[in-house]
Design a protein around this nucleic acid. Sequence first.
DNA 1: CCGCATCCTTTAAGATACTG
DNA 2: CAGTATCTTAAAGGATGCGG
Lengths: 144, 144
Amino acid sequence: MATMTAAERREQEKAAFDVYMDGCPTHQLMGIIGNKWSMLVLADLAHGARRYAEVGRALPGVSAKMLTQTLRSLERDGFVARSVTPSVPVQVEYTLTRLGERIVPLLTSIREWADRHIDEIHAARERYGEGAGQAVGADGRSLG
Amino acid sequence: MATMTAAERREQEKAAFDVYMDGCPTHQLMGIIGNKWSMLVLADLAHGARRYAEVGRALPGVSAKMLTQTLRSLERDGFVARSVTPSVPVQVEYTLTRLGERIVPLLTSIREWADRHIDEIHAARERYGEGAGQAVGADGRSLG
DNA sequence: CCGCATCCTTTAAGATACTG
DNA sequence: CAGTATCTTAAAGGATGCGG
């Protein structure tokens, strides 16, 4: 068909964009490290091999479910290696793979940028609270 | 109280860790750029000033709600400036602030890392699929 | 044109209980 | 010790309609 409505054309553009997003390496990487625990697990393993419960203790507040899920996800994506020693009870050790070690500098870059600019972000939040007359404090969450 | 149960001690550690997480600059930064549209909006504005609907067209699939929410969030955090021209109808233009411009190189680093390693991630996923989540033998190597 | 409000669906995360 | 299974809650995201 040579003609289509504007709505149809937007539909197609949206679909094409969705495909692009799904295939976008950056978006995929954010999906891997953008969740609550991945970066923390990676940061902990950067210091050396750790057993399941050791990682858990390093991350107070993580549930067994989320710890397993995060570790599995990182293993699946090639950042973490899991090795089982069939003793009794079994011993499971997690280490970074070469890929895992290679992402550490990027994580460090992110942390450094955050450390250098967090004050400016906080200052902006306070200014925004004043101007808009919205009750947004340091701990405020008025965004929805 | 000089003594407390292990459960109480873990409770305290968890609470302390939650406070630490909330205050962690890296975690806060990930909260800002880790959502679905922020990086895309930032990337679009990196090319120059844009009106509300222009950003929307650059990001097919974004709903008005999410576009507004993302823009507001970035404005609140000091990455984006919003200027209103009181014409009829009103005209609203968005630009990066200095802080917004300063994060662009970091975003570029992330994109470059992702582009360079996405193939290795995909390869790891395929290897993981083969093993069907099988446990790894202590002697054998299953992951590169 | 810009954007807020409302309602609804989907996904992430946490609590709890149980197993080899 | 190192998980799995199930349930519930919290949050993100999306569709739609209204208003300045």
